[in-house]
Design a protein around this nucleic acid. Structure first.
Length: 578
RNA sequence: GCCAGCGUAGCUCAGGGGUAGAGCAACGGUUUCGUAAACCGUCGGUCAAGAGUUCGAAUCUCUUCGCUGGCUCCA
């Protein structure tokens, strides 16, 4: 066994053992507690309980103290096997354990004990409770038994566990650092966006600074789509309900749609997606095989009902703008189109500074539209495309959408957290329902193939991701304010404004700090706003016709001619350097 | 939607039955300053909203709304 695997197994066993000790501690405080499950998870463990009263955060130190006693007692973990009926007797007051026992096919039931505590468990565990060196109970949460919202909600206690205190502390430090990058915190501090109680949850307002970043992303996005033969469209925000009845969305996704509104005796729906309008445009006239593929793209704003408990800053919202596209093509063009989308996706990910990513191919789910042959061939097409694009991937069996197989790409940010990125989905359902077709070389009507795809996902979630990835310190090309000019004293204001005008002519985002603060204070404010480039202008600069440059990194270059600086900045912007 | 916690000034937070507090920001003035916080002053709050308990509620109770951490969900 490789040393690393061995180490990970031991770590997992230790975390799982900590969960047992926590269950033991909880039982000693609540003798009537019903136990759920208590696995090891990334960085720690949890255990689910049904308790006579709700837990509060004040309970955690008490449970922790009891756990420490158990650890100090250094009790051995002992494995035993029991037959089914003995196990049922042992857990006769533990309904959840009984349910688990009934699901074990084997007649031999594994039991692990330490001290008086016995748990249904196949292990493995560490040798004794004393081997646990560093843990911390972190939070209480509700969790449905077996993850099923129709079953009772148990109380879950989460904890962290590491091989030693140092690693635990490092992990806690990492969490602190991650919290500092939280897009909700930075969104407020950098005045990027807001959500108003008065207006409604999950509805994002982009402030000037955030909007500047978004516009830069959108302009870039449009250029790249133009280069690749897309047509960028605009479509309305509402459409007749009938359209969504025809598509099947009304039946399938009703829980996530907003109630229809009546206009002139017709019912209208605010759109949850852009594809139907793109289909209407496709179907606006007969299409020839010669004009395919048609690549319709739109930064289309859609509205979906998300349960209140799932909303999260900008990353999970109720109104959002998808960087959407629908590609209509012949079946034999599907692979080529998928390859091109993958290329675009990879280019975008890289440009925004993400290096690591993970690709999943999701295959046919239990409930599906289309025929088995269609699924097989389309799935193969996506596989071929991935191979042609030389992208490594994993298959996620049964995770496809009901209307077709898909490729999902997740990328990792600077804090090693995964974000849902580009997705490519083949659709068998809509083309059929709306008779999406073209006239082939033989003069006969042929069914067209359809791909849904997004690269960034939604502007809102992508922005959240960028904020956290860069910790608010956007690279020059994206920064809301690219250059902040800091006059040393009021008499340098005119010169500062002249420089500002020159930079602005080149479409750079520039501001002059006109306050009467000290230079130190102006620098501090610009640094806290994370402006990439500061220009200090005082007597020396005015006399020499130069500027002093201070980059956000602290790097300083004095006596720079404004034209040289301008060239440098424009280069960096055009290269989109990070 | 479900479980738990939290909502005090624009922001960050203190105060936890006796009538509202700090720092930053904003505004006014003084200062005109050289690479991460000049000085003085002023403004600013139905303590999320509503109901109740009380002589008296920001504080205790209930309801509603919102947020946070999870669970479920995410075309």
């Amino acid at each position: 066994m490789p040393a690393e695997t061995d180490f990970n197994l031991k770590l997992e066993a230790m975390r799982h053992s900590t969960a047992h000790i926590m269950a033991d501690a909880v039982l000693s405080l609540f003798p009537d507690a019903k136990l759920g499950i208590g696995p090891s998870i990334e960085n720690g463990f949890y255990y689910d309980f049904e308790l006579p009263r709700p837990l509060s955060p004040d309970d955690l130190p008490v449970i922790t103290a009891r756990m420490k006693e158990i650890i100090k007692a250094n009790q051995p973990f002992i494995y035993k096997e029991a037959n089914r009926s003995d196990a049922r007797k042992l857990f006769k007051n533990q309904p959840y354990k009984l349910e688990l026992i009934d699901e074990i096919p084997d007649e031999k039931i594994g039991l692990y004990s330490h001290g008086e505590f016995v748990d249904l468990c196949r292990g493995p565990h560490i040798d004794t409770t004393g081997q646990i060196k560093a843990f911390k109970l972190t939070s209480i949460a509700g969790a449905y038994w077996k993850g099923d919202e129709k079953r009772p909600m148990l109380q879950r206690i989460y904890g962290l566990a590491f091989t030693d205190k140092k690693q635990l502390n490092e992990h806690l430090e990492m969490l602190k650092k991650a919290a500092l990058r939280d897009h909700r915190k930075l969104g407020k501090e950098l005045d990027l966006y807001s959500i108003y109680d008065e207006a409604g949850p999950g509805l994002v307002c982009w402030h000037p600074a955030g909007a500047a970043v978004r516009r830069t992303i959108e302009d870039f996005w449009k250029q790249e789509h133009d280069k690749r033969g897309y047509s960028v469209l605009y479509t309305p925000h509402i459409a007749k309900l009938n359209l969504w009845k025809t598509s099947g969305h009304w039946d399938f996704y009703r829980d996530n749609l907003y109630s229809p509104m009546v206009i002139d005796e017709d019912e209208y729906l605010i759109k949850p997606m852009n594809c139907l309008y793109h289909i209407l445009i496709y179907n606006s006239h007969k299409r020839s095989y010669r004009e395919l593929p048609l690549r319709f793209a739109e930064l289309g704003t859609v509205y979906r009902y998300e349960p209140s408990g799932t909303l999260h800053g900008m990353s999970r919202v109720r109104g959002f703008t998808q960087d959407d596209s629908h590609i209509f093509c012949r079946y034999n063009q599907l692979e080529g189109e998928a390859v091109q989308v993958l290329e675009l996706a990879m280019f975008m990910i890289k440009t925004f500074g993400f290096e690591k990513y993970q690709v999943k191919l999701s295959t046919r789910p239990d409930k599906y539209a289309g025929t088995d042959e269609m699924w097989e061939s389309a799935t193969q097409t996506l596989k071929d495309a991935l191979e042609k694009a030389a992208i490594e991937y994993e298959v996620d069996p049964g995770e496809g959408v009901f209307y077709g197989p898909k490729i999902d790409i997740k990328f990792e940010d600077a804090m090693k957290r995964a974000w849902q990125g580009p997705t490519i989905q083949i659709d068998f359902n809509l083309p059929q329902r709306f008779n999406v077709s073209y006239i082939g070389e033989d003069g006969q009507e042929q069914p067209a193939a359809m791909i849904h795809r997004t690269v960034l996902g939604s502007m809102e979630r992508f922005m959240a991701c960028l904020i956290e990835h860069y910790g608010g310190a956007f690279p020059l090309w994206l920064a809301p304010v690219q250059v902040q000019i800091l006059p040393v004293a009021d008499r340098h204001l005119d010169y500062a404004k002249r420089i500002e005008g020159n930079l602005r002519k080149e479409l750079l985002r520039v501001e002059v700090d006109t306050s009467s603060s000290t230079v130190n204070h102006k620098i501090r404010r610009a640094q806290m706003k994370k402006v990439p480039c500061m220009l200090i202008v005082g007597d020396k600069e005015v006399d020499a016709g130069t500027v002093s440059v201070r980059w956000r990194s602290g790097e300083q270059i004095n006596n720079v001619l404004p034209n040289n600086l301008l060239k440098d900045i424009i280069n960096k912007v055009n290269e989109r350097s990070l």
